[in-house]
């Protein structure tokens, strides 16, 4: 089925870890390099994120995304290497253009941190079913309504895309040119908006009724079909990550 989720179904320890722990990991992975701004923390954190992706057997799946981000970051390296404000030590020359060590190190810091954050998010996105994530958040107190919106988006949007196709067909069928030049396509796009919005509004009204009679608005506590995904070492992991972050703060203050 058409779905917008990037989730990759694999059998791995990382997949078994609960979504909340993965969220805590993202927070820690962002916080640590900020608290300890040395280049070493940056590359160590990045390496850890990549190793976890590898353990989750989704490293190959994440390479295109990491590659794309890396390519953009390469431009940062080039620009900073040549033009960073604090540039002093020349590493090499490209023709008459000097490339500096300070700029390179500065850009490397940015690159490692950015890739670390991308990696940490990829761990969550690639190894967690969106529905599991939403369900854990609802259990932790997120409003079930927001939870519903978050999880239905993944399926309703592909459905809307299918409606767009049908409506395009209906308009082509009545002699509206939708193929060919860019301008023709843009002109064809505008009249689409009306029916698409309208048919989704009609759908929304009908769906609201359907949800209401399925108890969507019933007050009182909800139960869950799926048992809460508890990873045995989940809380130990969360506490130790917290400990590491606090440790880092203390280290930063005294050292």
């Amino acid at each position: 089925m058409k779905s917008m989720s990037l989730y990759v179904e694999r059998e791995s320890t990382v997949h078994h870890i609960d979504p909340i722990t993965k969220l805590v990991y993202i927070a820690a992975a962002i916080a640590l390099p900020i608290i300890l701004p040395s280049l070493h923390t940056a590359w160590i954190c990045m390496l850890i994120s990549f190793v976890i992706l590898g353990m989750g057997r989704v490293l190959t799946r994440s390479l295109p995304i990491i590659g794309f981000v890396g390519f953009i970051l390469l431009t940062v390296v080039i620009i900073q290497g040549f033009f960073h404000v604090g540039n002093e030590t020349v590493l090499f020359r490209l023709g008459s253009w000097p490339f500096y060590e300070e700029g390179l190190l500065f850009a490397m810091g940015i690159t490692f941190r950015a890739l670390n954050i991308v990696g940490a998010f990829l761990i969550l996105v690639l190894t967690t079913k969106p529905s599991d994530l939403v369900e854990s958040l609802v259990r932790k107190g997120l409003s079930p309504r927001i939870g519903y919106v978050l999880s239905s988006v993944f399926q309703i949007i592909p459905q809307m895309m299918a409606t767009v196709d049908t409506i395009t067909d209906a308009q082509r069928s009545r002699g509206m040119e939708t193929e060919g030049k860019l301008m023709t396509r843009i002109k064809a796009f505008l009249p689409l908006i009306g029916p698409v919005v309208l048919s989704s509004l009609i759908d929304t009204k009908e769906r609201t009724l359907a949800l209401q009679v399925r108890g969507f608005n019933v007050k009182g506590s909800k139960t869950f079909l799926n048992e809460e995904k508890m990873y045995r070492y989940g809380s130990a992991m969360r506490w130790s990550m917290l400990a590491i972050v606090i440790g880092a703060v203390i280290w930063r203050v005294i050292a």
Binding site: I167, A170, S173, R174, E179, G180, P195, I202
Partner: peptide, 22 residues
């Protein structure tokens, strides 16, 4: 030919009128 060019020769009424009316 494109669909639009063929439209003068053959007409199709869609099953769901909401897809067609705008």
């Amino acid at each position: 030919v494109t669909v639009a060019q063929l439209a003068g020769k053959i007409g199709l009424v869609f099953q769901n009128p909401n897809d067609q009316i705008f």
